[in-house]
């Protein structure tokens, strides 16, 4: 494609998965304990989408990547110190709540609005990327909702691979049951891709890319519009972490097969 793609990646920040994530009740509804104080990372599903976007852009001259991100400005800023060093993109930040308890419809509306306001975005060349799931709490519908709001009809979810064809079409591998992929062909943009893990490793930090990105990211963060989700859009009756059970037994004389058999038996019993 001669003019390249306009790739918009939707992705926000989530607490570092190594942290203790403890739901608590607040006057505003459920939240994670100390969430603002915990270190954050770019949602791993969205991060895969971003790396795939950058890779695609690198192979299609004239392409450009935007990262549209809804989150607390201070958190976005911290996360950018890492992400901005990995690939080239322009940040479109929206200063607002990004916890896993925010209604996917409200989030999708805010993101779609932000995408529509991107200056110079050519909708006929638009590829909308995002995570198929989210590490904060997988509603699994946000990307579809954004696509609907933007009128993008070609939508693919659980994408692991996107291959450009000589005629400008895409071959897409989507995850289906049984560890298999469904192969689809898409004529080209506009299209939406909810990424699974993709195939690319996490790019190494490159401070030169970081310095170039940050010249635009810092002013963008300062200009970020502050938003609030629609009140009473969603109510939770309760929130609790998945139950964990730990039983440790030290064995020295069992083979791997015997240990595996014992674990399977334990799971079946549980």
């Amino acid at each position: 494609m001669s003019n390249g793609y306009h790739i918009v990646v939707c992705g926000s920040v989530v607490p570092d998965p190594l942290q203790t994530l403890e739901p608590i009740e607040t006057p505003a509804g459920p939240a994670l304990k100390n969430e603002m104080l915990l270190p954050a990372v770019l949602d791993p599903w969205a991060a895969h989408a971003l790396y795939e976007a950058a890779n695609l852009a690198a192979h299609a001259a004239g392409s450009k990547v935007w990262l549209v991100s809804l989150g607390a400005r201070a958190k976005l800023r911290q996360v950018m110190m890492t992400i901005a060093q990995k690939v080239s993109f322009e940040l479109v930040p929206i200063d607002g709540p990004a916890s896993g308890f925010i209604d996917a419809h409200a989030t999708a509306a805010l993101l779609a609005e932000a995408i529509q306001s991107i200056t110079g975005l050519d909708r006929s060349r638009l590829l909308l990327f995002g995570g198929w799931e989210s590490a904060s709490r997988g509603a699994g519908v946000t990307m579809q909702l954004i696509g609907e709001r933007l009128g993008i009809l070609d939508q693919f979810q659980g994408v692991d691979q996107l291959t450009m064809q000589p005629d400008g079409a895409f071959e897409i591998l989507e995850r289906i049951e049984g560890g298999r992929h469904q192969v689809s062909l898409c004529q080209g943009p506009p299209a939406l891709f909810g990424w699974a893990t993709g195939n690319l490793p996490e790019p190494r930090n490159n401070p030169q890319i970081g310095m170039a990105n940050m010249r635009a990211i810092m002013p963008a963060l300062q200009r970020a519009k502050t938003v609030a989700p629609a009140p009473d859009a969603l109510r939770y009756r309760s929130a609790s972490p998945p139950k964990q059970q730990r039983q440790t037994r030290i064995v020295k004389n069992l083979s791997a097969e015997e240990i595996a058999r014992e674990i399977v038996a334990w799971i079946e019993k549980a």
Partner: peptide
Amino acid sequence: RYELQMLVQSVRA
């Protein structure tokens, strides 16, 4: 100084 903040993240990785 964002260049130093990026450096910290890079070295930490």
